[in-house]
Design a protein around this nucleic acid. Structure first.
Length: 521
RNA sequence: GCGGAAGUAGCUCAUUUGGUAGAGCAUCAGCCUUCCAAGCUGAGGGUCGCGGGUUCGAGUCUCGUCUUCCGCUCCA
């Protein structure tokens, strides 16, 4: 690469992580005790950036939609919540690895697959018999009298019974014994070289004191959505919302991931920004597409490189969905899911209705009937959004130094709305009291409106670079001309251009640059 | 979980065949500085990830352990 050419270096992932730590964005958790795997703390600039992301999301949902309201439900919920949501069953898997193919399977599914094979043989015999006897064929009678089928059915019943008991008891050894006994092979490698069956519970459990037995067991929520669903009636009645309407929530969720990796991309404790939109059944595709486009627009408004954003349709749908799409972002390690938009049907509300015994329905005056609303969900990982913004913004640039020679600057080109520090106030020299005093005056005024920094240490160029490294969009410099006519220079982070403006206009200038309104037009 | 790499100052790294740790930047104090990093003087800061072993002697060799990073599957 020619040395004098302007260039943008994409920072590698390792450097990005180092930068996040060095400049107070993200620290490894409990570092003085050797760290805690895949847990991270947000530092002084990290928490500002994260709060700004949350603020943008919240305003775009709650403030910009008169039919979306927010809640903040607790992390602890009644244990039945997770029975209803399907998490107790779906998040509680007996897993077994095949040592040859390195593939991981659910042991119960392997055993069920074995049962299906036996049943397939029965069906084959039944079809043969049907062909032989024609219209006179009575399947029930055939099943009850044919020796081979009776024998196989007995076998099936035994296996299923054993499986049910083992699953109920959480007996992993029994499951392993079954896999061995029935000589179940890996569909991939065809081998029977299995590891032990181990139980992976994806939900964190804890206990509520002073309650005996099973009742005392609680889960930390694995998603915030259920806090919204169980409050559907409370919110709808107290705010008199009419369908369609939405409920938004930002909060922590916890999943005991088997492997947590890639910095803050996949962590066991994470923050979600979820909005559940309640609609009339039959209109779900219309709203699904509406939110799909609305959410992509939200991302693009931040000036994120459009080439790094794309949709990815789900082929295999989760148990609760009838349509699902991801918004993927190109992280330093490739395109990964950043946000999900799911058409959840009436699965969740119906489940809660059934398990709670409470009627969870909405009376639609236009149709003059009651129904369980359908739901379209938008769910974005806050930490993932943070990582997306950091990795999109950070770069190493070659810019001219004082002598016009090449020098490297590390700059975070965050959208000013998201920038942790909005402005830095810098006296040109620190050993001239007139300058430092004038600068302090400007700083004291600006700090009433924005997160600002005052810095007088080191040469002015170095101070600019320090602000570039944390993404501060504006640097206000107080020089000797300030003392004469009350003007200062405002240096813009991305263009490096300086404008001279009157002190009385500085606040408005910054205000215009960081205003969230610009993202909503 | 399996395979590969690595852990030395706040950061980036050095310490040649084992002889009880250094540099640059950063930090702090002072001097100097009229707009885009690296001016001068001085100071503080390290149980060389942790534990065991070999050795007169281990940052260096060996074993274990922990942590992190990079690949393989699901999720926000």
């Amino acid at each position: 690469m020619p040395p004098n050419k302007q260039r943008n270096h994409k920072m590698d992932f390792k450097n990005l992580i180092a930068h996040c730590k060095e400049y107070g964005f993200i620290f490894p958790s409990s570092e003085i005790y050797d760290g805690l795997s895949a847990v991270y703390d947000y530092g002084p600039y990290g928490v500002e950036l994260k709060n700004n992301i949350k603020d943008y999301w919240w305003k775009s949902m709650v403030q910009m939609h008169e039919n979306i309201v927010g809640i903040d439900a607790a992390i602890f919920m009644h244990p039945k919540t997770w029975k209803a949501s399907g998490h107790v069953d779906a998040f509680n898997d007996p897993l077994v690895d095949n040592k040859d193919s390195k593939k991981r399977y659910r042991a119960d599914q392997l055993i069920e697959g074995y049962v299906e094979k036996i049943e397939a043989k029965n069906l084959k015999d039944i079809e043969k018999a049907r062909a032989r006897f024609g219209d006179a064929f009575d399947e029930a009678h055939f099943r009850a009298t044919n020796d081979r089928i009776i024998e196989r059915q007995k076998q099936i019943d035994t296996v299923l019974d054993r499986l049910a008991q083992a699953m109920k008891a959480g007996d992993m050894e029994e499951l392993k014994a079954m896999v061995d006994e029935y000589e179940i092979v890996c569909p991939e490698s065809g081998s029977r070289n299995w590891t032990e069956v181990r139980q992976f519970n994806l939900m964190f459990s804890t206990q509520l004191g002073n309650i005996a037995g099973e009742e005392g067991k609680l889960y930390l929520r694995p998603e915030t959505a259920q806090g919204i669903f169980v409050n559907f009636l409370n919110v709808q009645k107290s705010t008199r919302q009419k369908i369609p309407f939405g409920i938004a929530q930002i909060g922590k969720a916890f999943r005991n991931e088997i492997v947590a990796r890639q910095f803050i991309f996949r962590t066991r404790e994470f923050e979600q920004m979820e909005m559940q939109f309640f609609i009339r059944p039959g209109t779900e595709m219309e709203w699904y597409h509406y939110w799909k486009e609305a959410r992509l627009k939200w991302h693009k408004a931040l000036g994120t490189d459009p080439a790094k954003l794309r949709f990815h349709d789900h082929v295999n749908l989760a148990h609760y969905a009838n349509a699902a799409v991801d918004i993927e972002f190109e992280f330093p390690f490739g395109f990964r899911e950043l946000e999900g938009i799911h058409s959840r049907t009436d699965f969740d509300l119906s489940q809660h209705q059934e398990l709670s015994g409470k009627k969870i329905q909405y009376f639609d005056p236009e149709l003059n009937e009651s129904y369980v609303p359908y739901v379209v969900e938008t769910s974005i990982g806050c930490d993932r959004m943070f990582l997306a913004m950091i990795s999109d913004a950070i770069r190493e640039e070659t810019v001219p130094d004082a002598e016009g020679q090449d020098s490297v600057r590390t700059v975070m080109k965050l959208h000013p709305v998201l920038a942790p520090v909005k402005a830095a106030v810098l006296p040109l020299l620190k050993n001239k009291e007139e300058l430092t005093k004038a600068a302090m005056d400007v700083f004291d005024k600006l700090k009433l409106s924005f997160i600002c920094q005052y810095d007088e240490k080191d040469a002015i160029g170095r101070r600019y670079r320090r602000q570039d490294a944390i993404g501060t969009p504006y640097c206000i410099t107080i020089d000797f001309e300030t003392l004469e006519n009350n003007t200062v220079t405002i240096r813009e982070r991305d263009s490096l251009e300086q404008k001279r403006v009157h002190i009385s206009e500085v606040k408005q200038h910054i205000q215009d640059g960081i205003a969230m309104e610009q993202l909503f037009v």
